[in-house]
Design a binder for these strands. Structure first.
Lengths: 229, 229
DNA sequence: ATATAACGTGTATTTTTTACACTAAGTAAT
DNA sequence: ATTACTTAGTGTAAAAAATACACGTTATAT
């Protein structure tokens, strides 16, 4: 029982800022807490890290338990270690952002009882949140605004096949500004990582757009890890 | 004694990647450990976080204890939470990078006994390090390579008054590539945050260069927080 | 057939980035 | 004082990237 030694008296938690795109709006995932502290409050999905799992593993597990979602793109972005952030003691929280394609078929089912409910809410219609989660959310948003310019994160938010207009919409929502259509297309295509498909959108009123796929292999080959969108 | 509850069995530590510039080379600070585990090994300056201090406070305290240095520019960059990274139990480490002007006058005096010695070593002549510190160092280096392009970090490494050639040298060392002198000057001056002084270098053989100061007020006013060096 | 709404495209202008080499100024040695 | 040496300091032309801007095309719905 090594951990009984002095100094082993912190709790570690994970909090996730989970972004989703439903074709129209940028959403984040919130849970409704079913336990104290902050019972009945909305909060970022999060929980304690177990002592026998790595922090990255823990993040995946926690997201899965609270939402039923697995294989989600996640990345650590900051650790929140202020003194009074948790009323039950010294809890330091490692925050992750996550991104996923939001298709109607994926129901959100918390696999644990401490969250009674999980729900997508529009990024700019977030209610008051438990703990310092408001702050963590803001930092997460700032972070992806920057990261989205250097990493092909937006494709995590889009379905496998997407139109260029959808890509542009996601960028506009994240960066929170309008982009010029022609210039945007010129630029995104200039990276040569989108594969034009022999296929059009289906089920839309009005003219259907061409579908594209993100070519991950080509991206890795061309850019290693970084780029400038 | 809230922290006796289940879950409060992590230790938290801070590790610092401290960069210094001595006018010629980019250095990082290492300590020689005087205690187990890894007694006699070189390591990044770091130690346990106390339960009654914030993570940021802890980082400053620890750096001060190990080196005698205070008021150093520090920023958190990643949290290392793998399972087996510490032989004595579950220790999760929050890593910071730090930057400071390395002038001869500042002697390094560890104020604690667990480090027997603190020393600046050239970034590309680092010996084998304790724990996962090699890895943390690499990540720290990657991080500042990116951050230095968006934040005026280099001025933390330089003396208050510096020449443009010195600025260029620091950028070249961090980015690890040669820059064109005329283009560099054009660009750095175009930001309008360097104030040309009525003063020249002293004590150099050969022609003395004009000294400049970084105008922090102007930087904040013009750019808020970000820029693209 | 017609109205509708989003699709998809090109060019000219401005701005930014890159490439490139010599003279000026101060120090040190003779 | 002359000379040799070393770093400081400067401009321009070409290429590349970013920006501004508008209309004919196409599939759908009525």
């Amino acid at each position: 029982m090594k951990n009984i030694q002095q100094g082993f008296n912190f709790a570690l938690s994970i909090d996730c800022v989970v972004f989703g795109f439903d074709g129209t709006a940028l959403k984040i995932l919130l849970i409704e807490r079913n336990e104290d502290p902050f019972k009945d409050w909305w909060a970022l999905p999060g929980n304690r890290v177990n002592v026998d799992e790595s922090v990255d593993q823990s993040a995946s597990r926690i997201l899965k338990e609270l939402t039923g979602l697995s294989d989600v793109y996640m990345e650590q972005f900051y650790t929140f270690g202020e003194l009074k952030r948790h009323p039950q003691g010294r809890v330091v929280s490692v925050a992750y952002y996550a991104m996923l394609r939001l298709s109607g078929e994926k129901p959100l089912k918390p696999l644990t009882t401490f969250a009674r409910n999980a729900q997508w809410v529009n990024v700019n219609q977030v209610p008051e949140l438990a703990f310092d989660h408001q702050y963590i959310l803001e930092k997460g948003l700032e972070k992806i605004k920057r990261r989205v310019r250097h990493l092909p994160l937006v494709f995590e938010l889009l379905p496998e096949k997407f139109t260029l207009t959808q890509v542009q919409n996601v960028y506009e929502l994240i960066l929170n500004k309008k982009l010029d259509k022609r210039n945007f297309r010129k630029k995104i295509l200039s990276f040569k990582v989108l594969k034009e498909l022999d296929e059009k959108q289906r089920g839309v009123s009005f003219r259907a757009a061409t579908l594209y796929k993100f070519d991950k292999r080509k991206y890795n080959k061309l850019y290693g890890k970084e780029i400038s969108f």
